Amino acid sequence: MIVLPCFETERLVLRPRGLADFDACLAMDRDPAVTRYVQGPWTNPKEHTAFLRSRIEIDYGRGLGYWSIFPKETPGSFAGWVLLIPYDAVGPEVEIGWRLNRLAWGKGCATEAARRILLHAFEELGLDRVVADIHPENHASQRVAEKIGMTFHRNGLYGGVPCKCFVQTLSGFRGRQPRNTGV
């Protein structure tokens, strides 16, 4: 089993998601407002439990997986998760995604966590490209994608449902990073 690194940002702690986060993830997914734009077995307890367990236990490869998000000011409060995994869990492309419980909405947590995971993707893993498919009505997630430097690529389908496909490339990412001018 590959161990994922932990990360800290200005306001957040990101640690590999594990079974200790299981109940918090289940509760978050059962909130219809949270999963409004996401297909999944959220209303079937048996399927939902099996789906979540498999997503927690699978080995996605070196440096890939899910990170649980915790605010530094309330370290025991599960805010949600951010992922960097093979597209639709199978690849070959790598996708980034995020899901936060309602208490964390509108506070910049998704943007802050996703920025750190993109840094990991490009600078530590050496990926050339990261994608995100977002429901066309999920304007909040589209704004997060744009804030972390992703650009709209095309309209597409994900599981037969329309989506907006966003992409960030290594060169685009490097072009957005602050440069050390030596001053």
Rank of each mutant, 00 (worst) to 15 (best):
R11Q: 05
G126D: 06
E57L: 14
A121W: 00
L100R: 01
E73K: 11
L83K: 05
G172T: 00
K72W: 08
G61Y: 09
N101S: 11
T9N: 04
V3N: 03
R179P: 01
W105A: 05
G61A: 08
M28E: 10
R62F: 10
F152I: 04
E93M: 12
G156R: 08
V130E: 00
L125E: 13
A50S: 15
T9F: 04
V144H: 00
R30N: 12
P92I: 11
A121G: 11
K72I: 10
L127I: 02
P41W: 02
D128F: 04
L64E: 03
N155A: 13
P75W: 10
R53M: 08
T169G: 01
C165T: 13
W42F: 11
S68E: 10
L125A: 11
R102C: 06
V3A: 11
R15T: 07
W105S: 04
P136F: 08
G126V: 09
P136T: 05
E95W: 08
H48A: 05
D23R: 09
R116I: 02
F173S: 01
P86R: 07
A121N: 10
G182T: 13
Q39V: 12
G91H: 13
F78R: 02
S54T: 12
D59N: 14
E137Q: 09
G108C: 09
R143A: 15
R174C: 13
P41M: 03
P136L: 06
I117H: 06
